[in-house]
Design a protein around this nucleic acid. Structure first.
Length: 779
DNA sequence: TCGAGAATTGTTTTT
DNA sequence: CAATTCTCGA
């Protein structure tokens, strides 16, 4: 049987349409990745399209990696020539080559949210803005939405009305100038500047139009206006653009996603072929029906109805708990029983806000359930990691003031605010970057007593700059740790602290190592062959590593098949599936959140409902929805009612259980009867400290007390999650690597963070790698 | 210059 | 209830 025959009729229809614009409306679990990969194979094998001319864009690296590996498996030769990447990494790759055409330096760095905030803070200080009125967060959010709509500072200023917006406009302009001065781009700039590049340089856009003759975009419902334009420009010549998405799964409006992109695709691309995929292959009928019932309450969606040929399966379970603590306990202990010590990777626990993860984490620890937490405090936001990265950035891009200022006194060199102030003044007077000002000020001896201290710093950086060209990043990190005294200072902080921090840095090193291993293979893949000026970026491994690190998302770091329960937000869960899913915190006020309930715009509630739909449709076989009457939020106890979304699921699909020991109250909720279609006035719901004790058994009524509680004793709790306690293979064993093929294990060193395995691969020679990354399998 | 303790904020969701 | 920012004394 031909591989294309494994598709159903609709999927085939989508696959056969190769030329011209196409919109695939792919419901949850309808096999869209399968369609995309087969379509790619079909293009290459049947239509004889050169793989070099095919591009697939996704949102996360994880999705890109999955697409890549599935295409690899399907297509024989040349699949590595296909451009599979995220929006952001696509733009970085393009900008690295050509950004000098629009006045930036090709060695730009990428600013994350923290960096943006630091810049904005500085601007607030300079402009003397009252931080009680203006919040960095809000101004940055406004700027970000402007960028999503391709609105520059000038245009924003023209449109601005009122004091607040005018101020924001000023900040926007200064912010942009500051970034440019630092030769830095924020996430939004990556897209915006690529669009600008295409618009200003006809030779560049026509080169890429010629190259990307066939374009596919995944999760199209999440694209914003800037991304829409980007795709439009790329597809401008051949119009072979195939987008896949599901308007019911659009959950990133807050980030600028424009649902109109998918709803009005046929207007933007007249004559577009539209294919609907409505057969769901993922979930059992009860789960799917529950999802359908919830989402049908939304207006303004493309009409569709998912169906499955699977059996009913178990009913959707709805659990009610007295408190969030009990909820966490109940869910985790049930998972422990269900897994009975075996594989936990079938389980996912989802929640609306990151703050909810803490309790669940605690219970995992106390029940001894292995877990992986996706999101939360990002690895790359930790102090020690940011410090090391700031060193690397200063080595790579001397114009990044933020990085240089971060480390000039880390570890302590006795250069404080006063010294930094003097350098800044000197820098501004001479039009230098912060780092260059350091170097120059040292030569001119204008810093008085701190000259020597600063000199030591610049000498160190200069020295590493020379070496950086041909020194592995791992060694660079070691050198930074040892020569600056960073390691020593870390050790002085206390044992536990030092231990975890060194481990984190070890992990960073292992990432660097595996990165270098991988890129050694495919460097130069997007080298030019058509004679266009190749751009000026002579990128070092260091540049590329920093770029890689800047663009990883939390989901990317998730491992599947790790044998652990996955804890993550509903947002992070999009695109994933698990046999057994728990959604916790199904309470009005939390999910849907108060913000969306109170919002004048009804669309906000609908977005929450889509999020609920996304959550439900992650489950393949079992789904449990839980809620708690009482939970701590921001330090105060909050009482809630069951989520309105649960009331939208008819009782025939569900099975309810109460863990509060308070039966009559529960049965009186009257779920699933008259709620649907009735517009709720929604004013009568109370929670919070207003009248809590009226809702709760007297015994647990909280005491109101003003007296300062005694100082709590804090104890550090340590979670050890990463390193496997043993490996399945040993020295001399034959193993297989997903990329390098088979080889023989030469040695295994038990490193502090992970095992370092050296393997002699049959076709790729000897490589050293960290076990966690290499994912070696014993043959 | 720098740390410890106090005060003050704050919550969606994130590439 | 944190996490972050602020203030003050050495």
């Amino acid at each position: 049987m031909n591989k294309f025959d494994t598709l159903n009729d609709k999927q085939k229809e989508a696959m056969f349409c190769t030329d011209g614009p196409e919109l695939i409306l792919a419901g949850a679990g309808s096999g869209k990745t399968k369609v995309l990969t087969h379509r790619t194979a079909y293009l290459i094998e049947e239509k004889h399209v050169n793989p070099w001319n095919i591009m697939a864009i996704t949102f996360t690296n994880k999705a890109a990696a999955e697409m890549r590996s599935r295409v690899d498996a399907l297509v024989g030769n040349g699949s590595e020539e296909i451009w599979v990447a995220t929006f952001h990494s696509t733009c970085v790759r393009i900008l690295r080559r050509f950004i000098d055409r629009i006045g930036y330096d090709n060695h730009f760095t990428i600013y994350d949210a923290d960096d943006q905030k630091t810049v904005m803070k500085k601007i607030f200080r300079e402009k003397n803005l009252d931080t009680r009125v203006f919040k960095e967060r809000n101004v940055l959010a406004a700027i970000s939405s402007a960028k999503d709509e391709l609105i520059g500072p000038e245009e924003y200023k023209q449109q601005a009305s009122g004091y607040g917006e005018e101020r924001t406009a000023e900040c926007y302009a200064v912010y942009q100038a500051e970034l440019k001065k630092n030769n830095a781009l924020d996430f939004d700039d990556l897209i915006v500047l690529t669009v600008r590049l295409f618009r200003t340089c006809p030779d560049v856009i026509s080169y890429y139009q010629e190259r990307f003759r066939y374009i596919m975009v995944d999760e199209y419902q999440d694209t914003n206006t800037a991304q829409f334009k980007l795709v439009e420009l790329l597809a401008g010549k051949y119009k072979n653009i195939c987008v896949v998405g599901d308007d019911d799964q659009s959950i990133y409006k807050f980030r600028g996603a424009n649902i109109g992109n998918i709803l009005h695709f046929e207007d933007s691309y007249p004559g577009a072929k539209v294919v609907k995929l409505e057969q769901n292959y993922r979930s059992t009928a009860n789960i799917l029906n529950a999802a359908n019932e919830v989402i049908r309450n939304n207006r303004g969606r493309k009409d569709k109805h998912l169906w499955t040929s699977k059996g009913d399966g178990g009913k959707v379970k709805i659990y009610r708990y007295p408190s969030a603590v009990e909820e966490a306990k109940g869910v985790i202990s049930e998972i422990k029983n269900a897994a009975s010590g075996g594989d936990y990777s079938n389980f996912a626990v989802l929640y609306r806000t990151n703050a909810q993860s803490r309790l669940l984490e605690e219970k995992c620890v106390s029940f001894g359930v292995p877990y992986q937490l996706v999101g939360g405090v990002n690895f790359y936001q930790r102090k020690e990691i940011k410090d090391i990265l700031a060193y690397l950035k200063t080595i790579a891009n001397g114009r990044d003031d933020l990085a240089a200022m971060r480390i000039i006194n880390v570890p302590k060199r006795g250069i404080g605010a006063a010294g930094i102030g003097r350098i800044t003044v000197y820098a501004e007077a001479n039009g230098l970057s912060f780092y260059d000002a350091c170097a120059s000020a040292v030569k001119m001896k204008v810093l008085g007593k701190s000259t020597d201290k600063v000199a030591k710093f610049t000498e160190f950086i200069e020295n590493l700059r020379k070496k950086a060209k041909d020194m592995p990043v791992t060694d660079l990190i070691d050198e930074i740790m040892d020569k600056t005294g960073y390691r020593e200072e870390l050790l002085e902080e206390g044992e536990v602290e030092a231990q975890t921090r060194t481990e984190n840095i070890e992990e960073l090193k292992s990432k660097a190592a595996s990165f270098e291993n991988e890129t050694a293979e495919d460097s130069g893949r997007d080298e030019d062959e058509n004679g266009i000026p190749a751009g000026n970026a002579d990128l070092t491994v260091l540049d590329r590593f920093l770029e890689e690190v800047a663009l990883v998302s939390d989901v990317d770091r998730m491992e599947d098949g790790s044998g652990r329960v996955t804890l993550m937000t509903l947002h992070a869960a999009k695109g994933l599936e698990f046999p057994d899913v728990y959604i916790t915190g199904m309470e009005d006020g939390l999910f849907p959140g108060n913000m969306s309930i109170a919002a004048a715009d009804e669309g906000e509630l609908e977005e929450e409902r889509r999020l609920c739909y996304v959550g439900i449709t992650r489950a393949k076989e079992r789904l449990t929805l839980t809620w708690a009457r009482q939970r701590m939020v921001n330090g105060e106890t909050r009482f809630s009612d069951i989520s309105r979304f649960l009331k939208e699921i008819p009782g025939e699909y569900t099975e309810e259980k109460d863990f509060t020991g308070d039966d009559e109250a529960y049965s009186s909720y009257g779920r699933n009867a008259e709620y649907r279609r009735k517009k709720e006035p929604d004013a009568e719901r109370e929670y919070g400290s207003a009248l809590p004790w009226e809702n709760v058994p007297a015994s647990s009524a909280p005491k109101k007390e003003k007296a300062k509680p005694p100082k709590p004793i804090l104890f550090g709790k340590e979670f050890k999650v990463t390193k496997a306690d043993h490996l399945e293979y040993g020295k001399g064993d034959r193993v297989r690597h997903f990329k390098f093929g088979e080889g023989t294990v030469l040695s295994i060193v038990n490193g502090s963070r992970d095992f370092e395995v050296t393997v002699d691969f049959d076709s790729h020679g000897v490589k050293k790698m960290f076990a966690g990354f290499a994912r070696l399998e014993k043959v």
